[in-house]
Design a binder for these strands. Structure first.
Lengths: 302, 302
DNA sequence: GATATTCATCTGAAAATCCGATAAATCGAT
DNA sequence: ATCGATTTATCGGATTTTCAGATGAATATC
């Protein structure tokens, strides 16, 4: 005769309730079946687990000793079953992510592709939108989480740092700056600059301060999308600046990058999640994967 | 359908061997039974645990995740069973015994030492306390059982006779009584008597009745501990009386003993256990050993 | 393409499990 | 003390589960 989970559950139930009858009810079996289960278990172990009369039930010395152990085992088992149901939910799932256009065309496709290898059943839906509306889409629940640069904090939204990367200067091959390993903001001021409209540039100006080199930021041209800026650079209309995570796109345009220094300015990117709202297992899994991916490809795109 | 330990063991066995056939062998069941077990488990969990063709078996994603968890649970369970069998086999255990101070310094150390030879893994914890509180400590569960002289019966406590021994007179070598082989209570009255305080002496007075010889008990001095009494006897301050089980202590003091007769009065000692409460295997074992020891050393200490 | 190996399935037989009823024990109240 | 209520233990029969052996299907190897 082997020990069964039923017997162990019976043991715990009787220990908890201190009564065969109550325990039987809680297990949805008859009292006689329960009586039999305990008897079997005691037989299998070769000793009494309860000191019992028809009126009183009490754990025996040995019973007291093993109760917490058995209880823990059953708890662990239930934990595993929970785990399984989570994993099961993970097998099919839909994750929606909001990200600014540039990120949605550089880092994220790369990560999504890598994730898809291990989790083909999970669909990742990418919402590319204006930087400004990433957080609001997270807030509205339209997406599971969002990725983007720092924005006004909001008590309903949690921002977790995903990475922090420096700015680089971008110019065509054979450009005057191509000879330098690094480019200073002052160097940059010597050339027509193509910048992005919106907060991207405004914040950068703040970071650089009112120092004379901020003149570098006086835009020659200002466009809405990075891809437009890159096309213009490619056409020899000027230089632009971007963050290294866009490296794949820059390479696609066959342009050159140089670290921007004096000072080196970095930009943090965050994952935005909504408070008081747990992620679906699939979303959780992809979010973890994203962090791991970024950590393992530190300085990716360089 | 509920999950069973059999299924979990089957899962582990298949994971380990990577083969249904081998796993079935190692579990001493047929391959078809094993196939069924895995099928059931997968059904219960609602997903595949193995990716299998007829030629190759491989843990699925989920299977890989839960394998270590399940393995740990089974290990824990086996650990508990081990624990139980150790307790049962007396390879470990703790026995707590309450006994009056005198007994805790004479008979019990002797028995415990003898028991320890055969059962070195079992710890015997001796609680020496006032005679009056032996039973209450048994009742409270503070000790597994108690040893002591007769006390008020209690429906919750079972008293089993351990031994019945006579009183002896104790005096220094060269004492006036040394020439006699036996000492009567009347003889005793001729010498200053040192007695123990408390019920010990009171009960003795009852046993002796109102006969004139009870004058023997009029105490010259009354002390709390036998060892004090013996020291005083040793110093020539008088004689005392005790029960033969204390012989080892008397000999330690190099005093002499003589049977007290006319009448011979005996005192019974009991083992007190609590009703409706089984002893742990270790306590059971030591209790049995104690009875055997006393029986085999009948009149021990003489 | 033949062969050997492996997992899945089917079937009858054996074992277990469960339930309901009943017995036995105990406690509390009259 | 006795009776009634409550609780655990046990018994017999019906049901369900489990298992072994044989067979079938799939696939890798030669």
């Amino acid at each position: 005769m082997n020990i069964t989970l039923k017997q162990l559950r019976a043991f715990i139930a009787v220990s908890r309730t201190g009564s065969f009858t109550l325990a039987a009810e809680s297990l949805f079996i008859t009292q006689s079946a329960l009586s039999g289960l305990i008897k079997e278990l005691e037989q299998a172990l070769g000793l009494r687990l309860f000191d019992r009369s028809t009126r009183r039930i009490q754990l025996s010395e040995v019973g007291r000793n093993i109760y917490p152990l058995i209880d823990k085992i059953l708890d662990d088992l239930d934990g595993v079953l929970d785990e399984v149901s989570k994993l099961k939910a993970l097998r099919k799932g839909l994750v929606r992510i909001a990200a600014p256009q540039l990120m949605a065309s550089t880092l994220l496709p790369e990560v999504i592709a890598a994730y898809g290898v291990a989790h083909p059943e999970i669909e990742i839906r990418l919402v590319d939108c204006a930087v400004e509306s990433v957080v609001s889409r997270v807030f509205s629940g339209e997406v599971d989480f969002g990725v983007g640069p720092e924005r006004d904090s909001n008590s309903e939204i949690t921002a977790t740092t995903l990475f922090e990367l420096p700015f680089v200067a971008v110019f065509p091959p054979g450009h005057a700056l191509a000879g330098q390993h690094e480019v200073s903001w002052a160097d940059l001021a010597e050339h027509p600059l193509i910048t992005l409209q919106g907060q991207f540039t405004e914040r950068l100006a703040v970071d650089l301060g009112s120092a004379p080199r901020s003149r570098a930021l006086e835009p020659h041209t200002s466009v809405a999308f990075m891809s437009t800026a890159l096309s213009m650079v490619n056409a020899g209309l000027g230089v632009t600046i971007c963050i290294t995570y866009a490296a794949s796109l820059v390479r696609l345009y066959r342009l050159e990058m140089r670290p921007l220094v004096d000072p080196q300015v970095t930009r943090r990117f965050y994952v935005f999640t909504r408070n008081n709202r747990s992620l679906s297992p699939a979303a959780q899994s992809f979010r973890d994967f994203l962090f791991r991916y970024v950590a393992e490809h530190a300085g990716f795109g360089e």
